[in-house]
């Protein structure tokens, strides 16, 4: 069951509440009795190994997965969720520019029948939110991982979301690009008060920026402050992983 309520958004109040969420696909239990909350103005990291059910949880939150339990949004305004996907499924040699990609989301008139000139300034402004307006004429198939993330983040920020959902934000991005993206996420929270739910398995990056961390492996295995996970043995014991949590 998914519900949406309008409430004021005081700091530390819940924005998203998930209660007893279970998902079963083809007889396999993908998520079992997941309980978690995301608070207003927080960066919340959802971590877990591959196959832990992170993507299924995102799909459930976005209403694209049949589930048991309750997902409750306590939005105070538009109730919009901005989503930054890990990847886009398309033939990367196809000539779709950043301009085309954003235009597809902004208009009902088929792209091939509309005039480009009228929308250019509007799209530049959207891209400006993540300082990537110079990429407007680049083909999306030709962008670097870092550039691609910024374009995806820009589209997620327009119109302004109440919850920003980032799926594997550090994947396919080099160290420099990942650091830049990190700064941008922190800036979005600090300057604009965005509430962000980040999903991924790059634990170092998550622990650097998150206010709160939930770890899942079919069910919730940890929920608390990132400081509690700075002991490398803690994560290894939670996930059976051999990881370093050298947080720089």
């Amino acid at each position: 069951m998914m519900t949406q309520q309008n409430k004021n958004s005081p700091a530390e109040a819940n924005l998203l509440e998930i209660r007893d969420l279970s998902v079963t696909l083809g007889g396999n239990t993908i998520l079992d009795q997941v309980n978690m909350e995301v608070k207003h103005g927080h960066i919340h990291a959802l971590i877990g190994p591959n196959g832990a059910g992170k993507t299924t949880l995102i799909r459930s939150i976005m209403g694209g997965m049949p589930h048991k339990g309750t997902i409750r949004f306590l939005f105070s305004d538009t109730g919009r969720i901005g989503y930054v996907p890990q990847l886009l499924e398309f033939d990367h040699s196809v000539p779709i520019t950043v301009f085309d990609f954003i235009s597809l989301m902004l208009q009902r008139v088929p792209l091939f029948l509309s005039r480009r000139r009228n929308k250019r300034e509007r799209i530049k402004k959207i891209l400006g939110a993540t300082h990537c307006q110079h990429l407007i004429d680049r083909l999306i198939g030709g962008l670097s991982g870092g550039e691609f993330r910024r374009v995806l983040l820009a589209q997620a920020l327009s119109p302004a979301p109440e919850l920003l959902l980032l799926d594997e934000p550090a994947s396919n991005v080099d160290e420099h690009g990942a650091r830049q993206f990190e700064k941008m996420i922190v800036q979005l929270k600090e300057d604009h008060g965005h509430s962000i739910l980040m999903v991924g398995h790059d634990i170092q990056m998550m622990l650097r920026v998150a206010d709160r961390v939930t770890a899942i492996n079919r069910t919730v295995t940890f929920d608390g402050s990132p400081d509690e996970l700075k002991d490398p043995g803690r994560i290894a014991s939670l996930f059976g992983l051999n990881v370093s949590t050298d947080v720089r």
Binding site: M62, I81, F90
Partner: peptide, 25 residues
């Protein structure tokens, strides 16, 4: 096809992205 071109194109990129844009992929 003409009326739904943008939505069909967008729906194919990523189902969750399409959902976040109010579409049914």
């Amino acid at each position: 096809f003409i009326c739904s071109f943008n939505r069909i194109m967008l729906g194919g990129f990523n189902p969750i992205l399409a959902k976040s844009r109010g579409l049914n992929p």
